[in-house]
Design a protein around this nucleic acid. Structure first.
Length: 114
RNA sequence: UCAGAUGGCUGGAUGGCCGCUGGCGGGUUCGCCCCGUCAGAGGAAAGUCCGGGCUCCACGGAACCACGGUGCCGGGUAACCCCCGGCGAGGGUGACCUCAGGGAAAGUGCCACAGAAAAAAUACCGCCAUGGUGAUCAUGGCAAGGGUGAAAAGGUGCGGUAAGAGCGCACCGCGGUUCUGGUAACAGAACUGGCAGGGUAAACCCCACCGGGAGCAAGACCAUGUAGGAACGCAAAAGGGGGCUUCGGCCUCCAGCGGGGCGGUUUCGUCCGUGCGUUCGGGUAGGUUGCUAGCGUUGGCUGGUAACAGCCAUCCCAGAUGAAUGGCCAUCCAUCGUCAGGCUGACGCCAUGGCGAGGACAGAACCCGGCUUACAGGCCAUCUGACCCU
RNA sequence: UGGGGCGUAGCCAAGUGGUAAGGCAGCGGUUUUUGGUACCGUGCACCGUAGGUUCGAAUCCUACCGCCCCAG
């Protein structure tokens, strides 16, 4: 399991949104961007104000962070940025379903770009 | 028992697996790497509506002019648009709740429609007297009644009168004076005045008091970096002396100029200097500190009706920065729905069992004191009204 | 953190204490073979919410809600 880093700059998020692949499921969105180097994979979390108030957004970010630790880290490859975006039902979706969705998204991505 | 009023407290519990941030101790292959241990959101952390601390700037003064805020009285407080107690007005059967300064005789403004008349005084329908023959009408007196309006120069009754009118009287209201109680707001009483003449200041305003500006992205240090780029438009300036020079310029002094900052203007002072606007392009935004011990927490005693204050003891209690304080699971306790059962004439109630749902509002960002707003439920105390029983 | 603005009919909006304009859209009619155009008529607003001041509030005051913008 590779070691991951956090994405910090707005420009990194913009680059992932503009050039990366976008994978959508019912409870989350993942943007994957190949930076083209061999450094650590980086993970970023986004929860917009459309999700809800501060409590709701924080809960969504914590669930996505747990998802990144449990599922995404197994699939992460060096030189890639992974941006997890919360959707409306991210705070309330059943946990096994979210794990399965995230796992399926990552598996699809690996199959299309081996 | 039911219905209500006020004040206060609380804001799920336990366990397991996997994680996050910080302090301390130890290890170390020196890397925010490992191990141990301790701590880790709220009553509103929210809205950012007031008041302070703290930091930087102005640490300038004067005058005038603004601007903003507050406003019954007394107290509390570091301070307040806050809190406590009292006064007044209004509402409620009541416990209790709501509101707010004074000035409209300092001045200005506004008061639509209706109405005769809206603050200057007047008279539409009327009443009375005189003249006129009777009606119509003329002159004079009156403002009680009608009508309009949110509001029309006190109200009710009796007397009085040509008809009327505070014209007179009684009561009520109002103004003034004095006395009494109270620190005061104010209240009460006596005497007196025949009423002394609308509303609006949450319209301008007058009066009293308060207010310098910005904000932790304040500010300090280290590192990095050369640098304050170009075009257009508008307005406007470019004097002299000295020093350094890589001869491109740079520094300094004096005078002038005009502009800008110090809330505005003036005076002096001070700082900056080609200024302003638009467009385009480029660079930086990394770390440490400020950063949590403070008008502090908890408990007791004393003073005070209370807000609160004093003293003693006790405790150390979040410091993140794409932003930690959790993710998942199980059980239990509140709560709700539903089914079966029991009681009842019925509404409904009971608690036994089964199934299902399932935690309100909400997340620190420099720190305090308040205010406002949101909030599932649960608990306590005091008080009020109604009914029943003793 | 500080500052500013807006909320009125389905949409765009005027109104700044005295019965809430106007336009587009809608509906009904006339003209037309039909549609469009043109003309006539008509409905639609408790003025973001809740209190207060006033005789009277979209307007003034207070609190709240939502949206947008600016500076660092």
């Amino acid at each position: 399991m590779p070691e991951t880093r956090k994405m910090l700059n707005r420009s990194e998020f913009v680059a992932a949104a503009r050039h990366g692949r976008k994978l959508v499921s019912s409870s989350l969105v993942v943007q994957i961007h190949n930076r083209g180097d061999d450094a650590h994979p980086r993970i970023g979390i986004t929860a917009t104000r459309k999700i809800g108030n501060a409590v709701t957004r924080n809960r969504a970010k914590r669930r996505l962070r747990a998802l990144a630790r449990d599922v995404l880290a197994r699939h992460a490859r060096p030189g890639h940025d992974y941006v997890l975006i919360a959707r409306h039902n991210t705070p309330t979706k059943a946990w096994p379903v979210m794990q399965a969705e995230c796992d399926r998204l990552m598996a699809d991505h690996s199959r299309h770009q081996p």
